[in-house]
Structures are given as structure tokens and as C-alpha cells.
């Protein structure tokens, strides 16, 4: 109350000076203030893997199509079937992990499936079963669990030779579309646009 009254008195005694707009600054200076120079961190964040910081706790499922670096705590499942997962030295994972490639510097409790490669680095700790095609365990790492080495999948059998132009010309168009070889190759490709004309030909 007293402040309010003193302000009132001040305004009454000394009128405020007339407003004068600030002088326009040169354009170059404004740009410098508005957009700070990129730091190495910002460059890393934009170009490097997605990152879960060490103060972050996630409970649930993580699915990612890009590389992921986890230095925080995860409880649940982590799935990066096409990408690389790195668990940093501060990372604490209590989760089922599936990824194309897994590198562990920190602490993992749970089963890990790395389709291509698994690395357990020095001072890392992993308790759980591993399924992977290749594994690297550095001296000083702790591991307790099963290791299953995935065999590389056998290459698909070569496709049957495409019929020669002469052979296809000799058979009727309907017959060629309904031949088992043709429909099988369409099915293998899994391409709906290719399959549709075949169904149309039948009708």
C-alpha cells in the first residue's frame, strides 16, 4: 500500500519523459544477436545419432529408424531393427533390446538381439542372453548369460529364368499371366502394383 502511494506521488511530481524510439540498429548486428554461432554440440545433434541423455529415464518402448545413443536409463524395450544402438558409459538398460548393431559401454540387464554385430566394451556390464551374428568382448567387460551366434540366412535360390521372347510369344497372354512361375515371382517381390494387372487379366 505504501509503495503504491509512493509511486503515485512520484508520478504526480515528476512526469515521465516523452517516449523516444530507439535508433534502428544495423541489420548485421541484429543477425549476430538473433542466431548464435553453432557450437560443436549443435552440429553433433543435427548430424549424429538421436540421444537419450544421462539424466533421462524412459519407461516403455523405444522404436527408432535412426541410430540411437543412450546414456540414460531405459526400462522396457528398445528396437532399432535397421540401426545402431550405443549404450553409453552412464547408460542403464533394463530392457529387451533388438537392433542391427549394439555397442555397450554401460550397464545392460536383459536379452539383446543384434542382427549384425554386438560389442561389449571394457568396463561394460551385461547380464542377459545374446543373439547375434558376430560378437566382440573386450577384456575387462563383464558378461553373464548365453551367447547364440546367428547363422547368416541362406541366400534365396536363384529365380527361374525368365521365359524367352519366343516362348512367351508362342503361348497365349492369359496362359502366361496365370502360369505358376509368373505369379510366384510377383509374390516374392511383394509389389502390389505388379500384382494388380495379373488379377485384372484373370477377370
Amino acid at each position: 500500500m505504501s509503495m503504491w502511494s509512493s509511486r503515485q506521488r512520484g508520478r504526480d511530481e515528476e512526469p515521465a519523459p516523452p517516449y523516444t524510439p530507439p535508433a534502428a540498429e544495423p541489420m548485421r548486428e541484429r543477425l549476430v544477436v538473433a542466431t548464435p554461432a553453432p557450437t560443436p554440440n549443435t552440429v553433433y545433434a543435427s548430424n549424429g545419432p538421436a540421444m537419450v541423455g544421462k539424466a533421462v529415464v524412459v519407461k516403455g518402448e523405444i522404436h527408432s529408424r535412426e541410430d540411437l545413443y543412450i546414456d540414460g536409463e531405459i526400462q522396457g524395450t528398445v528396437e532399432l531393427m535397421e540401426s545402431k544402438l550405443t549404450i553409453g558409459p552412464n547408460g542403464r538398460i533394463q530392457a529387451a533390446v533388438r537392433a542391427r548393431e549394439v555397442v555397450v559401454f554401460g550397464n545392460v540387464q536383459g536379452n539383446v538381439e543384434a542382427l549384425e554385430k554386438m560389442e561389449i566394451r571394457k568396463d561394460a556390464r551385461l547380464v542377459g542372453d545374446i543373439r547375434t551374428a558376430r560378437i566382440v568382448i573386450e577384456d575387462g567387460a563383464y558378461f553373464k548369460g548365453n551367447i547364440d551366434i546367428l547363422k547368416p540366412e541362406p541366400k534365396p535360390a536363384p529365380k527361374p529364368a525368365t521365359p524367352s521372347p519366343a516362348a512367351s510369344a508362342s503361348s497365349s497372354p492369359e496362359g502366361s499371366q496365370n502360369s505358376p512361375a509368373k505369379s510366384a515371382s510377383v509374390g516374392e517381390q511383394g509389389n502390389a502394383r505388379v500384382a494388380e494387372p495379373v488379377r485384372g487379366g484373370k477377370s
Partner: peptide, 9 residues
């Protein structure tokens, strides 16, 4: 198939 365990640990 290998099960690894550190006995001293």
C-alpha cells in the same frame, strides 16, 4: 551355444 559366467565374480 555358450553360457559365460565368471566364477570368481
Amino acid at each position: 551355444r555358450l553360457y559365460a559366467e565368471s566364477f570368481p565374480h
